[in-house]
Design a protein around this nucleic acid. Structure first.
Lengths: 224, 224
DNA sequence: ATACCACTTACAGCTGTTGTAAGGTTTGTG
DNA sequence: CACAAACCTTACAACAGCTGTAAGTGGTAT
């Protein structure tokens, strides 16, 4: 069942939305605390997020902006602020749709279904800044060029992008790519990093995979 | 430059829309005849189509419905009919967005940009009914399962989907897959068709590739 | 200066893909 | 039913690309 997370501080409206969406067959839920809403949203891994704009703490716009860097799920902004500039702001920050309160349940459902349908086709796509990786085929796309990575290189790239912008430790790499944390041969990491860097270079990307001596590797795509 | 085709019979509104979109940096154009609008649209291969609903001949809804089977470009419905049921109808037929006239140019541009951005990631996806094929990697997806085809099988599948629901002749197959219409060996087609069918069968798809004796092959995905 | 960590290149084994060959099955026609 | 043409299937060997190992070079912190 598809999970929809509603970030809305008005408790009545929130329950109404949850009710509407559940009736339509979705697993709808809404956090009531907005303390660590960013972490909570990430942990819930929703298939769609419906965000209000005026929230205690971070605004819906801020949330939208920070999530769209990794673009794992669609975001629908639902707000009482109905001016054109609000809509332009939301869409400009990467929101996938913009609706104003009050919103007829049927309209919400229709828009929701359309977003979920479109994003279903992007389900295997992992994003990190301007890079996107199809985790099934390891097709790596960067501005209009692409390249199909070999399996091992692809697994490494996937991990680097999932952890972006954090560092990936070597033990984590071993566990995730070779399914063992035991010492295979340290060298195997370096050989494959070398191969990955050469592949990235063929895409016109240099110095994106950075080694942190004694720690591991990070992806750096800020300058791209 | 991205091409946007506007299907709108009101000449003043059409020119206004074209002007707005051109100013925003798009290659906007609008056919003035609506005779063979379906073929014309297909031939123009737009990056986005903006459709009116009330058109001479086929309605925008009909156009939308028939194009969404192959889903090669996003469709925005722009109409004066502003009831909720019009919007639900449009979205239900697969339209990617729904706006009502009159529409502020900035809103149109913002929605347009969002659609183009989203579809940019789907650019390599070819659709035929419930099947979709990534033409870069030959990843074939069918309801939540997928499979990566070998290059030759993928090229054949690509051609079958591009021509869907028409038959693909053998000479066309040779030309498109083996880059020669000369006699290689007739058998090579049959061997690879056999392989493709076996692959499709692993996805749970049987009898989708049908031979027309003496003519060629067709994809049949109606029952799927 | 030294020890450690990281990088690069070469190589051989392995895997998956491809066309050819050979033989079997289906379909249409007289 | 007999026959031929068209189509299907399986097996096989050549080939290409991927992977880990090995060996040697380069860089860095103490």
């Amino acid at each position: 069942m598809l999970r929809i997370v509603i970030v809305e501080d008005d408790i009545y409206l929130r329950e109404e939305l949850i009710h509407t969406l559940k009736k339509a067959g979705y697993d709808a839920l809404g956090p009531s605390s907005f303390e660590n809403i960013e972490e909570e949203l990430a942990a819930l891994r929703p298939d769609l997020a419906i965000l209000d704009v005026n929230l205690p703490g971070k605004s819906g716009y801020e949330l939208c902006k920070s999530f769209k860097v990794k673009a794992s799920f669609p975001i629908l902004i639902l707000t009482a602020r109905d001016t054109l500039s609000d809509e332009l702001m939301a869409l400009g920050l990467g929101a996938d749709d913009f609706l104003t309160k009050p919103c007829h349940p049927d309209r919400l459902i229709a828009r929701t279904e359309r977003l979920l349908q479109t994003y279903h086709k992007l389900r295997s796509l992992l994003q990190a800044g301007p890079l996107s990786l199809d985790t099934d085929t390891y097709k790596l796309t960067y501005t209009d060029r692409f390249l199909i990575l070999a399996e091992t290189e692809g697994k490494i790239m996937k991990l680097l992008m999932e952890r972006f912008p954090n560092t990936v430790g070597k033990s984590e790499l071993f566990f995730s790519v070779w399914e063992t944390e035991e010492f295979v041969d340290e060298n195997i990491v370096q050989v494959n990093m070398s191969r990955l860097r050469k592949s990235l270079s063929r895409l016109g990307i240099d110095n994106a995979v950075r080694n942190i001596r004694g720690k591991g590797y990070v992806l750096e795509v800020d300058g791209l």
